[in-house]
């Protein structure tokens, strides 16, 4: 399962108004570590689909949101609950490390 893309147009609906916790992966095509970590996020997404939604936001195409959430390094992962950021993880990490960071939202 590949995490679906959100944009400035769909962000409110898909992320802010989502009933579930949502992890937004802020990424870009030119970011090597973003591409490297992407399959790991897809795995986490399919293994924990009942608890956590995982979506991708391209910072190149959606600069306003990148600015709003003060992204200065990617990949950056922000978990939203009821429209608020409750957790930020920065940088590509191996799956066990990411799972540990996200433990509160996937277990």
């Amino acid at each position: 399962m590949t995490a679906r893309a959100v944009t400035e147009a769909t962000f409110e609906q898909e992320v802010l108004n989502n009933e579930k916790a949502v992890l937004v992966d802020f990424w870009a095509e030119w970011c090597g570590p973003c591409r490297a970590v992407s399959p790991i996020l897809d795995q986490i997404a399919s293994e924990h689909a009942d608890k956590l939604d995982i979506v991708k936001l391209n910072v190149d195409e959606n600069p306003q949101l990148a600015m709003k959430y003060q992204i200065t390094a990617i990949p950056a992962f922000k978990v939203f609950e009821k429209g608020e950021v409750v957790k930020t993880v920065i940088g590509a990490k191996p799956k066990p490390a990411l799972e540990a960071d996200l433990a509160a939202y996937i277990s």
């Binding site: 870009a28 030119w30 970011c31 090597g32 570590p33 973003c34 910072v59 190149d60 990148a66 003060q70 992204i71 200065t72 390094a73 990617i74 950056a76 920065i90 940088g91």
Partner: peptide, 17 residues
């Protein structure tokens, strides 16, 4: 501050500056 203005990867993060 790592990831909040402090970076080790110019090609990843230069865009935000």
């Amino acid at each position: 501050l790592s990831g909040h203005g402090l970076s080790w990867c110019a090609t990843c993060d230069g865009f935000f500056f």
